Amino acid sequence: MNASEMAKISKPEWEKATSELRISNVKTLSTALHDLEDLLLLDKPALRPTASAPTKKPATGSCDPYNRSRYYGYATNTTKFFNELYAFCFTLAKPPQVRNIDMETASAFWSVLVVPKYPLMSDILQFINEKGTYKGVNKDLWTMTLEFCRAVQPDLSNYDPEGAWPTMLDDFVTWKKNGAAGDIPM
């Protein structure tokens, strides 16, 4: 929708996006959102263009429920477009004239964006909630948290303590290795 503000879509943004995507009802909007979730968040295989789906023509004759041209573009490089979505979410969640987003908002976004792809993020969120001392997330921490989840194995076996990770992530590793709550044998 190219919304410029979190949790708000202006009428012109809505009209432009639904027109371009040829979405005219809630069911079709739901289909489009599920398609994107499956592709970018859940890493499900991309849908194939239908035989009669137009590439540059209007909807007439298309078997697709909406204009999937953007979707098919995203499917060409899901990593690139996930990275763009992830970066956009930081910008969207960050209040104007502020450099950070609050931890509660960051945690909510991480739960939706990162947990489905990288289960290690669930442990990081548990750590953040238990610790309770981290209040905000700057762009560096936002970016490095995704990179950490991509690079480090869930069992932390390939974690390099000499790496240049943000302090919060180093603290998480210490917490996890020292027997995080729920991991301590009884």
Rank of each mutant, 00 (worst) to 15 (best):
G73L: 08
A93G: 12
A75H: 11
Y86T: 15
A87D: 13
P49L: 01
L47G: 03
Y74L: 13
Y71F: 08
L29S: 11
R70T: 10
K57V: 09
A87R: 15
K94Y: 07
R48Y: 04
L47Q: 05
D43F: 14
N83H: 04
E20V: 02
A93I: 12
L40A: 06
E37D: 15
S62P: 04
Y71A: 00
L36Y: 00
A87I: 14
N77G: 09
F88I: 04
H34V: 00
S30N: 06
D35S: 05
L47F: 01
S62W: 13
N67Y: 08
Q97V: 06
R22Y: 00
A32M: 02
T50M: 13
T76W: 00
L85C: 12
A93F: 09
D35M: 02
Q97F: 01
L39H: 12
Y86K: 07
P54G: 06
D35W: 06
S69V: 06
E20Y: 10
Y86C: 11
D43L: 12
D38F: 02
P95N: 07
D38L: 02
Q97P: 04
E20P: 00
A93K: 09
D43C: 14
L39Q: 11
P49A: 10
S62G: 00
R68E: 01
S30P: 02
P54W: 15
S62Q: 02
L40T: 03
A75E: 08
Y74A: 12
G73F: 09
K94R: 15
T76S: 13
T91G: 05
D43W: 12
P54S: 08
Y74H: 15
T50Q: 02
L21N: 01
T60Y: 15
D64R: 12
P58S: 10
A51R: 14
L42M: 06
T60H: 13
H34F: 04
T31S: 07
F82I: 11
P65W: 05
L92H: 14
G73E: 11
L42Q: 05
P49T: 01
L47I: 03
K80W: 07
P58D: 10
A46G: 14
S52H: 05
A75L: 06
A53S: 14
A46I: 00
D35G: 03
L40Q: 09
Y86M: 05
N77S: 15
F81Q: 07
R22A: 12
G61H: 05
Y66W: 06
Y74W: 12
T28V: 01
L39I: 09
L47N: 04
P45A: 07
V98Q: 15
D38S: 09
S52P: 03
A87S: 15
T31E: 04
T31C: 04
L40V: 05
N67Q: 09
P45E: 12
T55D: 11
E84K: 15
L85V: 12
A32C: 00
S52M: 03
T50W: 13
L21S: 01
T91S: 05
L85K: 02
K94I: 07
V98W: 09
V26L: 09
L36V: 07
N77F: 02
K44A: 15
E84R: 14
